[in-house]
Write a protein that binds this DNA or RNA. Structure first.
Length: 463
DNA sequence: TAATGCGGGTTCA
DNA sequence: TGAACCCGCATTA
């Protein structure tokens, strides 16, 4: 890594720079991290001022604003996840875990509503609160400086990931408009969005292109007008099986970049200027293509009528499964946890929840570790017993990528993991990341298709 | 209507 | 004093 300058005593060249969100002086960074939608654990990242997701303080987790009485640091705390009180299972054996509304009023309305799983008998939605930070919700901190956006997370989520933000928005649209109207609305939005995106990209070819783009899944000559259904921050079309590390090695701002630092003194709030980054041009969002077959693997698993809660049917792998830049090797581990009880009927390829859901981690940063309660005791789906898992230390050591304290760059083939001064290596090409925003707003052909599929398996409820 | 940000205020360790 | 949380308000989509 390249350290530009360092006024802090711990940032001399060759050493791992260090900072805390509350520091009076934070480093000046010239190389940035890739945006992480599902940051979990004690994480610090530095994003470029032009990173739209960072500017919006986006997160896959349902984070609500929390007043910390510090105008320079925005604090958010996790709301947890909306689950079924009956702990019902979807046909693939996974669980209901919806996104809680950020708005208190809306969230209260969500609670107590019937479980959207048609196979659920009498379940109601209830909030499973986040207690991942010493018994308190996981908190995210955002700090804007002239040269960067600093992000710090404290705590590890002790609950599944909520559904994608876009999914809840789509459902809300559908809930309001009901079936036919919702579809029509989506189709109309698609046309408007495609138009808007083309215009936007023509006008601003570079501003939001900080993330390298994946190549199209399908060669140009095989393309059809299909785009991803993902929301702006949960785009799961990042997965490309044929990706190689070299594919994204050309970007000047590599997602695996580490950071270089200047000392940075806080300045008056202002719109951060765009940095002179040498971003590679990207394909238009409309260039995100999927094979038609893949359309049917998007979003939630397909619901089939099933008589009993524990009765499970096969589900197919989805893009969400194959997931995000924050996909971690623990996901296989999660798969074990979340495999349906009696799992003989479960597919080899899990549903989005199975791979993409949250996870349980012991809070290794708390002086007084919080002891979570088993939420799904019968299946140990999210809260395994001690004997079913490795020690918290090992979990974290194995699964947590080294964050900004890492001095060496992470390449695409090898992620380095740091835990209590120990480093672990792990090969995982799926740790590629690329710009969600650029590929997320496309579409809605497949959104409509996916939504219709969704409807087959979920009751339309206003959540 | 909900997401988001801001800020006043309270409670508690 | 710091952290968590509640509440209301304003803005935006």
């Amino acid at each position: 890594m390249v350290i530009v300058t360092g006024n802090r005593p711990d940032m001399s060249e060759g050493q791992t720079p260090d900072w805390d969100i509350n520091d009076a002086v934070v480093p000046r960074v010239v190389n940035f991290d890739a945006f992480g939608e599902w940051c979990d654990g004690h994480v610090r990242r530095v994003y470029p001022p032009a990173c739209e997701e960072a500017r919006r303080h986006a997160s896959g987790w349902a984070m609500r604003n929390t007043n910390n009485h510090n105008v320079h640091i925005l604090k958010k705390s996790c709301l947890g996840v909306l689950v079924c009180s009956a702990r019902c299972r979807l046909p693939d054996g996974s669980r209901i875990h919806l996104r809680p509304a950020i708005c208190d009023k809306a969230r209260k309305k969500q609670q107590g509503k019937p479980c959207p799983n048609r196979g659920c008998n009498g379940g109601r939605l209830e909030v499973l609160p986040c207690r991942g930070h010493c018994g308190y919700p996981v908190t995210h901190f955002w700090r804007h400086t002239e040269h960067a956006i600093f992000f710090q997370a404290k705590g590890a989520h002790d609950h599944p990931r909520p559904e994608a933000k876009g999914a809840s928005e789509v459902r809300r649209s559908l809930g309001a408009g009901r079936r036919v109207r919702g579809l029509a609305l989506l189709l109309a939005r698609e046309a408007a969005m495609a138009d808007k995106m083309l215009t936007t990209n023509a006008d601003k070819p570079n501003v939001n292109n900080a993330h390298p783009q994946p190549p199209p899944l399908i060669p140009d000559n095989q393309r059809v007008q299909l785009t991803c259904t993902c929301g702006p921050f949960e785009c799961s079309c990042r997965w490309r099986p044929e990706l190689t590390a070299d594919t994204y090695a050309t970007g000047a701002w590599s997602p695996q970049n580490t950071q270089s630092y200047h000392a940075y003194a806080p300045s008056a709030p202002q719109d951060p200027p765009l940095q002179a980054q040498h971003y590679d041009p990207i394909a238009l969002p409309g260039d995100e293509m999927y094979h038609p077959n893949e359309i049917f693997h998007l979003d939630q698993p397909i619901r089939l009528d099933f008589p009993a809660e524990e009765h499970t049917l096969e589900s197919s792998l989805t893009f969400a499964d194959l997931n995000s830049e924050n996909s971690r090797p623990e996901e296989a581990y999660w798969l074990d946890w979340q495999r349906p009880t009696g799992g003989s009927e479960s597919s080899e390829t899990p549903s989005p929840e199975l791979l993409g859901s949250g996870h349980q981690q012991a809070e290794a940063y708390c002086e007084q570790p919080y002891v979570p309660q088993a939420y799904y005791p019968e299946g140990a789906q999210y809260y395994p017993n001690e004997h079913t898992r490795t020690s918290p230390e090992m979990d974290e050591a194995q699964f947590y990528p080294t964050e900004s304290r890492t001095s060496a760059p992470m390449n695409t083939q090898e992620q380095r993991f740091l835990r209590y001064g120990q480093e672990y290596s792990q090969t995982n090409v799926d740790m590629h990341t690329w710009n969600y925003s650029d590929c997320a707003f496309t579409s809605n052909d497949t959104t409509a298709t996916s939504v219709n599929l969704h409807r087959q398996y979920f009751d339309v409820v206003d959540l």
